[in-house]
Design a protein around this nucleic acid. Structure first.
Lengths: 214, 214
DNA sequence: AAAAAACTAGGTATTAATACCCGGTTTGTC
DNA sequence: GACAAACCGGGTATTAATACCTAGTTTTTT
Protein backbone atom coordinates (compact mmCIF):
# COMPACT_ATOMS: atom_id res chain seq x y z
CA UNK A 1 0.00 0.00 0.00
CA UNK A 2 1.39 3.36 -1.01
CA UNK A 3 1.68 6.05 1.55
CA UNK A 4 -0.22 9.34 1.43
CA UNK A 5 2.33 11.98 0.53
CA UNK A 6 1.89 15.22 2.45
CA UNK A 7 3.19 18.73 2.52
CA UNK A 8 2.58 20.92 5.58
CA UNK A 9 2.37 24.68 5.70
CA UNK A 10 2.04 26.69 8.87
CA UNK A 11 3.80 29.69 10.25
CA UNK A 12 3.53 28.42 13.81
CA UNK A 13 6.62 26.40 14.62
CA UNK A 14 4.79 24.64 17.41
CA UNK A 15 2.01 23.40 15.23
CA UNK A 16 4.37 22.39 12.48
CA UNK A 17 6.30 20.30 14.94
CA UNK A 18 3.21 18.78 16.41
CA UNK A 19 1.96 17.82 12.99
CA UNK A 20 5.26 16.42 11.87
CA UNK A 21 5.39 14.34 14.97
CA UNK A 22 1.83 13.11 14.64
CA UNK A 23 2.22 12.11 11.02
CA UNK A 24 5.58 10.53 11.53
CA UNK A 25 4.04 8.15 14.00
CA UNK A 26 1.02 7.33 11.84
CA UNK A 27 0.93 4.51 9.32
CA UNK A 28 0.48 5.34 5.71
CA UNK A 29 1.59 8.95 5.98
CA UNK A 30 4.72 10.46 4.57
CA UNK A 31 5.70 14.08 5.01
CA UNK A 32 7.52 15.35 1.94
CA UNK A 33 8.15 18.84 3.20
CA UNK A 34 7.07 21.54 5.60
CA UNK A 35 6.99 25.23 4.80
CA UNK A 36 6.26 28.18 6.95
CA UNK A 37 4.99 30.74 4.49
CA UNK A 38 3.07 30.99 1.25
CA UNK A 39 6.01 31.93 -0.95
CA UNK A 40 8.07 28.95 0.11
CA UNK A 41 5.06 26.76 -0.46
CA UNK A 42 4.44 27.96 -4.02
CA UNK A 43 8.10 27.51 -4.85
CA UNK A 44 8.18 24.07 -3.34
CA UNK A 45 5.09 22.94 -5.18
CA UNK A 46 6.79 23.60 -8.49
CA UNK A 47 9.30 20.90 -7.71
CA UNK A 48 7.24 18.42 -5.79
CA UNK A 49 3.50 17.86 -5.44
CA UNK A 50 1.93 16.05 -2.52
CA UNK A 51 -1.28 14.08 -2.51
CA UNK A 52 -2.62 16.24 0.27
CA UNK A 53 -1.60 19.72 1.32
CA UNK A 54 -2.24 20.81 4.88
CA UNK A 55 -2.66 24.54 4.80
CA UNK A 56 -2.92 27.18 7.47
CA UNK A 57 -4.51 30.36 6.23
CA UNK A 58 -3.39 33.02 8.62
CA UNK A 59 0.07 33.37 7.22
CA UNK A 60 1.90 36.55 6.41
CA UNK A 61 2.10 37.51 2.77
CA UNK A 62 -0.58 35.57 0.99
CA UNK A 63 -4.07 35.24 2.39
CA UNK A 64 -5.48 31.75 2.63
CA UNK A 65 -8.07 32.43 -0.03
CA UNK A 66 -5.52 33.65 -2.53
CA UNK A 67 -3.22 30.76 -1.82
CA UNK A 68 -5.92 28.12 -2.11
CA UNK A 69 -7.12 29.61 -5.38
CA UNK A 70 -3.65 29.71 -6.92
CA UNK A 71 -2.79 26.19 -5.86
CA UNK A 72 -6.10 24.69 -6.91
CA UNK A 73 -5.63 26.15 -10.37
CA UNK A 74 -1.95 25.45 -10.76
CA UNK A 75 -1.95 21.98 -9.23
CA UNK A 76 -5.45 20.57 -9.54
CA UNK A 77 -4.36 17.13 -8.37
CA UNK A 78 -3.25 18.39 -4.98
CA UNK A 79 -6.02 18.00 -2.40
CA UNK A 80 -6.10 20.98 -0.07
CA UNK A 81 -7.00 20.43 3.56
CA UNK A 82 -7.30 23.67 5.49
CA UNK A 83 -6.18 23.43 9.09
CA UNK A 84 -6.67 26.63 10.99
CA UNK A 85 -8.09 28.48 13.95
CA UNK A 86 -10.22 30.77 11.86
CA UNK A 87 -13.82 29.78 12.31
CA UNK A 88 -15.57 32.69 10.69
CA UNK A 89 -18.24 31.44 8.37
CA UNK A 90 -17.36 33.86 5.63
CA UNK A 91 -13.77 32.69 5.53
CA UNK A 92 -14.74 29.04 5.50
CA UNK A 93 -17.21 29.46 2.67
CA UNK A 94 -14.78 31.47 0.63
CA UNK A 95 -12.06 28.87 1.07
CA UNK A 96 -14.27 26.00 0.08
CA UNK A 97 -15.24 27.91 -3.02
CA UNK A 98 -11.58 28.55 -3.74
CA UNK A 99 -10.91 24.85 -4.01
CA UNK A 100 -10.26 23.53 -0.53
CA UNK A 101 -11.44 19.95 -0.07
CA UNK A 102 -11.55 19.94 3.70
CA UNK A 103 -11.65 22.22 6.69
CA UNK A 104 -10.49 21.27 10.16
CA UNK A 105 -10.00 23.49 13.17
CA UNK A 106 -6.72 23.28 15.01
CA UNK A 107 -8.58 22.36 18.13
CA UNK A 108 -9.49 19.07 16.48
CA UNK A 109 -8.24 15.83 17.95
CA UNK A 110 -5.43 14.02 16.22
CA UNK A 111 -7.81 11.27 15.20
CA UNK A 112 -10.02 13.75 13.38
CA UNK A 113 -7.05 15.24 11.60
CA UNK A 114 -5.93 11.83 10.38
CA UNK A 115 -9.46 10.99 9.32
CA UNK A 116 -9.69 14.24 7.42
CA UNK A 117 -6.45 13.56 5.59
CA UNK A 118 -7.63 10.12 4.52
CA UNK A 119 -11.03 11.43 3.44
CA UNK A 120 -9.57 14.21 1.36
CA UNK A 121 -7.02 11.86 -0.14
CA UNK A 122 -9.89 9.59 -1.20
CA UNK A 123 -11.48 12.53 -2.98
CA UNK A 124 -14.19 13.16 -0.42
CA UNK A 125 -14.95 16.53 1.09
CA UNK A 126 -14.33 16.71 4.82
CA UNK A 127 -15.81 19.25 7.20
CA UNK A 128 -15.57 18.97 10.91
CA UNK A 129 -19.01 18.57 12.48
CA UNK A 130 -18.60 21.86 14.32
CA UNK A 131 -17.74 23.70 11.14
CA UNK A 132 -20.55 22.09 9.19
CA UNK A 133 -23.13 23.09 11.78
CA UNK A 134 -21.89 26.61 11.78
CA UNK A 135 -22.27 26.95 8.05
CA UNK A 136 -25.76 25.49 8.11
CA UNK A 137 -26.84 27.74 10.95
CA UNK A 138 -25.39 30.72 9.24
CA UNK A 139 -27.15 30.10 5.95
CA UNK A 140 -30.45 29.53 7.70
CA UNK A 141 -30.24 32.43 10.08
CA UNK A 142 -28.59 35.31 8.36
CA UNK A 143 -29.75 35.32 4.78
CA UNK A 144 -32.78 37.46 5.46
CA UNK A 145 -31.18 39.69 8.00
CA UNK A 146 -27.79 40.56 6.73
CA UNK A 147 -28.61 40.45 3.07
CA UNK A 148 -31.89 42.27 2.74
CA UNK A 149 -32.12 44.27 5.93
CA UNK A 150 -28.61 45.50 6.22
CA UNK A 151 -28.85 46.94 2.76
CA UNK A 152 -32.17 48.61 3.45
CA UNK A 153 -30.83 50.70 6.27
CA UNK A 154 -30.87 54.22 5.03
CA UNK A 155 -28.26 56.92 5.24
CA UNK A 156 -30.11 58.82 7.89
CA UNK A 157 -30.73 55.74 9.93
CA UNK A 158 -27.07 54.92 9.78
CA UNK A 159 -26.20 58.38 11.05
CA UNK A 160 -28.65 58.04 13.88
CA UNK A 161 -27.29 54.60 14.67
CA UNK A 162 -23.77 55.96 14.94
CA UNK A 163 -24.88 58.62 17.36
CA UNK A 164 -26.96 56.22 19.42
CA UNK A 165 -23.91 54.02 19.79
CA UNK A 166 -21.87 57.09 20.66
CA UNK A 167 -24.07 57.50 23.71
CA UNK A 168 -26.22 60.42 22.66
CA UNK A 169 -29.89 60.75 23.54
CA UNK A 170 -32.58 61.32 20.96
CA UNK A 171 -32.68 64.95 21.95
CA UNK A 172 -28.95 65.38 21.46
CA UNK A 173 -29.02 63.52 18.17
CA UNK A 174 -31.83 65.77 17.00
CA UNK A 175 -29.75 68.82 17.76
CA UNK A 176 -26.68 67.40 16.07
CA UNK A 177 -28.58 66.54 12.93
CA UNK A 178 -30.78 69.61 13.07
CA UNK A 179 -34.01 67.68 12.98
CA UNK A 180 -36.82 67.09 15.42
CA UNK A 181 -36.56 64.66 18.28
CA UNK A 182 -39.66 62.99 16.90
CA UNK A 183 -37.90 62.28 13.65
CA UNK A 184 -34.98 60.80 15.49
CA UNK A 185 -37.31 58.59 17.47
CA UNK A 186 -38.94 57.43 14.27
CA UNK A 187 -35.58 56.53 12.80
CA UNK A 188 -34.69 54.66 15.95
CA UNK A 189 -37.85 52.62 15.78
CA UNK A 190 -37.18 51.91 12.13
CA UNK A 191 -33.76 50.60 13.11
CA UNK A 192 -35.20 48.42 15.83
CA UNK A 193 -37.63 46.85 13.42
CA UNK A 194 -35.11 46.39 10.62
CA UNK A 195 -32.52 44.79 12.84
CA UNK A 196 -35.07 42.75 14.73
CA UNK A 197 -34.22 43.94 18.22
CA UNK A 198 -36.33 45.54 20.87
CA UNK A 199 -34.20 48.21 22.43
CA UNK A 200 -31.10 50.31 22.00
CA UNK A 201 -28.84 47.93 23.83
CA UNK A 202 -29.66 45.13 21.43
CA UNK A 203 -29.46 47.59 18.57
CA UNK A 204 -25.89 48.56 19.33
CA UNK A 205 -24.86 44.98 19.88
CA UNK A 206 -26.34 43.84 16.60
CA UNK A 207 -24.87 46.77 14.75
CA UNK A 208 -21.45 45.86 16.07
CA UNK A 209 -21.97 42.23 15.11
CA UNK A 210 -23.00 43.22 11.61
CA UNK A 211 -20.10 45.58 11.27
CA UNK A 212 -22.31 48.63 10.85
CA UNK A 213 -20.34 50.51 13.44
CA UNK A 214 -16.69 50.34 14.41
CA UNK B 1 21.74 22.14 37.73
CA UNK B 2 18.08 21.42 38.47
CA UNK B 3 15.67 21.31 35.63
CA UNK B 4 12.76 23.71 35.23
CA UNK B 5 9.64 21.73 36.04
CA UNK B 6 6.74 22.50 33.73
CA UNK B 7 3.06 21.79 33.39
CA UNK B 8 1.33 22.41 30.07
CA UNK B 9 -2.30 23.23 29.49
CA UNK B 10 -3.91 23.51 26.10
CA UNK B 11 -7.03 22.10 24.56
CA UNK B 12 -5.34 21.74 21.19
CA UNK B 13 -3.78 18.29 20.95
CA UNK B 14 -1.47 19.46 18.22
CA UNK B 15 -0.02 22.27 20.23
CA UNK B 16 0.31 20.13 23.28
CA UNK B 17 2.28 17.60 21.30
CA UNK B 18 4.40 20.23 19.68
CA UNK B 19 5.22 21.72 23.05
CA UNK B 20 5.94 18.40 24.64
CA UNK B 21 8.26 17.57 21.84
CA UNK B 22 10.03 20.90 21.95
CA UNK B 23 10.58 20.77 25.66
CA UNK B 24 11.64 17.17 25.65
CA UNK B 25 14.45 18.02 23.32
CA UNK B 26 15.54 21.07 25.27
CA UNK B 27 18.06 20.98 28.06
CA UNK B 28 16.98 21.91 31.50
CA UNK B 29 13.29 21.39 30.93
CA UNK B 30 11.12 18.73 32.43
CA UNK B 31 7.43 18.31 31.68
CA UNK B 32 5.57 17.07 34.73
CA UNK B 33 2.16 16.86 33.17
CA UNK B 34 -0.08 18.12 30.38
CA UNK B 35 -3.74 18.89 30.75
CA UNK B 36 -6.30 19.86 28.19
CA UNK B 37 -8.83 21.79 30.23
CA UNK B 38 -9.07 24.06 33.24
CA UNK B 39 -10.72 21.60 35.57
CA UNK B 40 -8.06 18.97 35.05
CA UNK B 41 -5.44 21.61 35.60
CA UNK B 42 -6.85 22.82 38.91
CA UNK B 43 -7.14 19.24 40.11
CA UNK B 44 -3.64 18.42 39.00
CA UNK B 45 -2.15 21.48 40.66
CA UNK B 46 -3.43 20.27 44.01
CA UNK B 47 -1.15 17.27 43.78
CA UNK B 48 1.83 18.67 41.95
CA UNK B 49 3.07 22.22 41.37
CA UNK B 50 5.45 23.12 38.56
CA UNK B 51 7.94 25.94 38.47
CA UNK B 52 6.31 27.30 35.36
CA UNK B 53 2.81 26.77 34.03
CA UNK B 54 2.19 27.19 30.31
CA UNK B 55 -1.40 28.23 29.95
CA UNK B 56 -3.69 28.63 26.99
CA UNK B 57 -6.63 30.84 27.73
CA UNK B 58 -9.22 29.92 25.18
CA UNK B 59 -10.29 26.72 26.83
CA UNK B 60 -13.80 25.53 27.43
CA UNK B 61 -15.14 25.88 30.95
CA UNK B 62 -12.97 28.43 32.66
CA UNK B 63 -11.90 31.65 31.04
CA UNK B 64 -8.23 32.41 31.07
CA UNK B 65 -8.67 35.36 33.39
CA UNK B 66 -10.54 33.34 35.95
CA UNK B 67 -8.06 30.52 35.75
CA UNK B 68 -5.02 32.76 36.08
CA UNK B 69 -6.59 34.53 39.05
CA UNK B 70 -7.43 31.33 40.87
CA UNK B 71 -4.03 29.78 40.30
CA UNK B 72 -2.07 32.89 41.18
CA UNK B 73 -3.90 33.04 44.46
CA UNK B 74 -3.91 29.36 45.26
CA UNK B 75 -0.38 28.61 44.14
CA UNK B 76 1.57 31.84 44.31
CA UNK B 77 4.88 30.09 43.66
CA UNK B 78 3.80 28.84 40.26
CA UNK B 79 4.90 31.20 37.51
CA UNK B 80 2.24 31.52 34.86
CA UNK B 81 3.27 31.93 31.25
CA UNK B 82 0.33 32.55 28.97
CA UNK B 83 0.71 31.04 25.53
CA UNK B 84 -2.15 31.88 23.26
CA UNK B 85 -3.42 33.28 20.00
CA UNK B 86 -5.49 35.96 21.66
CA UNK B 87 -3.85 39.29 21.08
CA UNK B 88 -6.51 41.68 22.29
CA UNK B 89 -4.98 44.30 24.52
CA UNK B 90 -7.74 44.11 27.07
CA UNK B 91 -7.33 40.40 27.49
CA UNK B 92 -3.59 40.70 27.84
CA UNK B 93 -3.79 43.45 30.42
CA UNK B 94 -6.41 41.65 32.38
CA UNK B 95 -4.34 38.50 32.44
CA UNK B 96 -1.22 40.28 33.55
CA UNK B 97 -3.20 41.90 36.33
CA UNK B 98 -4.57 38.49 37.25
CA UNK B 99 -1.09 37.24 37.99
CA UNK B 100 0.42 36.04 34.72
CA UNK B 101 4.19 36.57 34.52
CA UNK B 102 4.55 36.28 30.78
CA UNK B 103 2.62 36.44 27.57
CA UNK B 104 3.69 34.79 24.35
CA UNK B 105 1.72 34.35 21.15
CA UNK B 106 1.53 30.90 19.67
CA UNK B 107 3.07 32.21 16.52
CA UNK B 108 6.29 32.74 18.43
CA UNK B 109 9.37 30.84 17.44
CA UNK B 110 10.52 27.99 19.60
CA UNK B 111 13.53 29.99 20.69
CA UNK B 112 11.29 32.75 22.01
CA UNK B 113 9.15 30.27 23.88
CA UNK B 114 12.18 28.75 25.56
CA UNK B 115 13.51 32.18 26.38
CA UNK B 116 10.17 33.12 27.90
CA UNK B 117 10.11 30.04 30.07
CA UNK B 118 13.58 30.75 31.40
CA UNK B 119 12.78 34.40 32.03
CA UNK B 120 9.61 33.65 33.90
CA UNK B 121 11.33 30.93 35.88
CA UNK B 122 13.95 33.45 36.93
CA UNK B 123 11.17 35.70 38.20
CA UNK B 124 11.28 38.18 35.37
CA UNK B 125 8.26 39.32 33.45
CA UNK B 126 8.33 38.32 29.80
CA UNK B 127 6.33 39.96 27.07
CA UNK B 128 6.91 39.32 23.43
CA UNK B 129 8.06 42.47 21.66
CA UNK B 130 4.91 42.53 19.57
CA UNK B 131 2.70 42.25 22.62
CA UNK B 132 4.64 44.85 24.55
CA UNK B 133 4.34 47.40 21.76
CA UNK B 134 0.66 46.83 21.57
CA UNK B 135 0.17 47.46 25.24
CA UNK B 136 2.31 50.56 25.25
CA UNK B 137 0.46 52.00 22.29
CA UNK B 138 -2.82 51.25 23.91
CA UNK B 139 -1.92 52.77 27.24
CA UNK B 140 -0.71 55.91 25.57
CA UNK B 141 -3.80 56.34 23.48
CA UNK B 142 -6.42 55.61 26.08
CA UNK B 143 -7.03 57.35 29.31
CA UNK B 144 -6.64 55.58 32.58
CA UNK B 145 -10.23 54.50 32.55
CA UNK B 146 -10.29 50.80 32.46
CA UNK B 147 -7.45 49.98 34.79
CA UNK B 148 -9.44 50.82 37.87
CA UNK B 149 -12.90 50.72 36.39
CA UNK B 150 -12.73 47.53 34.44
CA UNK B 151 -11.44 45.63 37.41
CA UNK B 152 -14.12 46.91 39.73
CA UNK B 153 -16.97 45.48 37.69
CA UNK B 154 -18.43 42.73 39.76
CA UNK B 155 -19.53 39.25 38.76
CA UNK B 156 -23.17 40.09 38.99
CA UNK B 157 -22.75 43.27 37.05
CA UNK B 158 -20.99 41.34 34.35
CA UNK B 159 -23.85 38.88 34.14
CA UNK B 160 -26.33 41.70 33.90
CA UNK B 161 -24.19 43.36 31.26
CA UNK B 162 -24.19 40.22 29.15
CA UNK B 163 -27.95 40.02 29.27
CA UNK B 164 -28.43 43.70 28.55
CA UNK B 165 -26.30 43.29 25.45
CA UNK B 166 -28.30 40.19 24.57
CA UNK B 167 -31.33 42.41 24.27
CA UNK B 168 -33.19 41.51 27.44
CA UNK B 169 -35.15 44.03 29.50
CA UNK B 170 -34.57 44.52 33.21
CA UNK B 171 -37.67 42.49 33.92
CA UNK B 172 -36.47 39.58 31.82
CA UNK B 173 -33.00 39.75 33.30
CA UNK B 174 -34.53 39.71 36.76
CA UNK B 175 -36.41 36.53 35.92
CA UNK B 176 -33.39 34.88 34.40
CA UNK B 177 -31.21 35.65 37.40
CA UNK B 178 -33.99 35.07 39.92
CA UNK B 179 -33.65 38.48 41.53
CA UNK B 180 -35.83 41.56 41.70
CA UNK B 181 -36.14 43.96 38.80
CA UNK B 182 -35.07 46.64 41.23
CA UNK B 183 -31.82 44.87 41.86
CA UNK B 184 -31.20 44.56 38.17
CA UNK B 185 -31.83 48.26 37.74
CA UNK B 186 -29.37 49.00 40.50
CA UNK B 187 -26.73 46.88 38.80
CA UNK B 188 -27.41 48.62 35.53
CA UNK B 189 -26.93 52.02 37.10
CA UNK B 190 -23.76 50.80 38.71
CA UNK B 191 -22.51 49.77 35.29
CA UNK B 192 -23.41 53.12 33.78
CA UNK B 193 -21.45 54.93 36.45
CA UNK B 194 -18.45 52.63 36.36
CA UNK B 195 -18.13 52.72 32.60
CA UNK B 196 -18.89 56.41 32.44
CA UNK B 197 -21.82 56.27 30.03
CA UNK B 198 -25.32 57.54 30.35
CA UNK B 199 -27.51 54.86 28.82
CA UNK B 200 -27.64 51.26 27.71
CA UNK B 201 -26.64 51.98 24.15
CA UNK B 202 -23.41 53.56 25.28
CA UNK B 203 -22.98 50.82 27.83
CA UNK B 204 -23.03 48.07 25.24
CA UNK B 205 -20.74 49.97 22.93
CA UNK B 206 -18.21 50.60 25.66
CA UNK B 207 -18.39 47.02 26.86
CA UNK B 208 -17.64 45.81 23.36
CA UNK B 209 -14.77 48.25 23.06
CA UNK B 210 -13.33 47.09 26.35
CA UNK B 211 -13.71 43.46 25.43
CA UNK B 212 -16.11 42.76 28.27
CA UNK B 213 -18.51 41.09 25.86
CA UNK B 214 -17.90 39.16 22.68
C1' DA C 1 -13.48 37.90 64.34
C1' DA C 2 -13.75 42.18 62.10
C1' DA C 3 -14.07 44.96 58.07
C1' DA C 4 -15.07 45.74 53.38
C1' DA C 5 -17.28 44.81 49.41
C1' DA C 6 -20.95 42.87 46.96
C1' DC C 7 -25.67 41.57 46.62
C1' DT C 8 -30.22 42.26 47.59
C1' DA C 9 -34.53 45.11 47.21
C1' DG C 10 -37.77 48.56 48.28
C1' DG C 11 -39.61 53.91 47.92
C1' DT C 12 -40.20 57.65 44.83
C1' DA C 13 -39.63 60.56 40.88
C1' DT C 14 -38.30 62.07 36.46
C1' DT C 15 -36.87 61.34 31.94
C1' DA C 16 -36.05 58.61 27.78
C1' DA C 17 -37.53 55.26 24.86
C1' DT C 18 -40.85 52.50 22.53
C1' DA C 19 -45.15 51.84 19.80
C1' DC C 20 -48.51 53.04 16.35
C1' DC C 21 -51.03 56.51 14.34
C1' DC C 22 -51.14 60.17 10.68
C1' DG C 23 -49.79 63.29 6.59
C1' DG C 24 -46.67 66.49 4.20
C1' DT C 25 -42.05 67.24 1.77
C1' DT C 26 -37.95 66.12 -0.50
C1' DT C 27 -35.16 63.07 -3.36
C1' DG C 28 -34.10 59.83 -6.75
C1' DT C 29 -35.43 56.94 -10.59
C1' DC C 30 -37.80 55.35 -14.64
C1' DG D 1 -44.32 63.76 -14.92
C1' DA D 2 -45.12 59.62 -12.19
C1' DC D 3 -43.83 56.81 -8.76
C1' DA D 4 -41.53 54.94 -4.82
C1' DA D 5 -38.63 55.64 -1.21
C1' DA D 6 -36.66 58.33 2.01
C1' DC D 7 -37.15 62.08 5.09
C1' DC D 8 -39.55 64.91 8.23
C1' DG D 9 -42.48 65.75 12.25
C1' DG D 10 -46.67 65.98 15.11
C1' DG D 11 -50.44 63.40 18.39
C1' DT D 12 -50.93 60.22 22.01
C1' DA D 13 -50.00 56.52 25.10
C1' DT D 14 -47.50 53.10 27.53
C1' DT D 15 -43.50 51.06 29.19
C1' DA D 16 -38.59 50.93 30.29
C1' DA D 17 -34.84 53.18 31.98
C1' DT D 18 -32.47 56.43 34.80
C1' DA D 19 -31.49 58.74 39.26
C1' DC D 20 -30.98 58.99 44.12
C1' DC D 21 -32.17 57.25 48.44
C1' DT D 22 -32.01 53.84 52.45
C1' DA D 23 -30.85 49.43 54.49
C1' DG D 24 -30.62 44.51 55.54
C1' DT D 25 -28.09 40.17 54.10
C1' DT D 26 -24.42 37.58 52.16
C1' DT D 27 -19.83 36.94 50.54
C1' DT D 28 -15.08 37.99 50.46
C1' DT D 29 -11.03 39.79 52.32
C1' DT D 30 -7.98 40.80 55.90
Amino acid sequence: MTKIRLILTDDHPLILNGLRNLLHNSDGMEVLAAYHNGLQLLDGLEKQQPDVLLLDIQMPGYSGQELAGIIAKRHPDVKILVLTNEDSVHVIKSLLQSGAMGYVLKSASEAVILEAIRAVYAGRQFLEAEVRDKIVQHTIHTRQEQGALNASITRREKQVLQLVAANYTSQEIAEKLCISKRTVDNHRIGLLVKLGVKNSAGLVKKAVDLGLIS
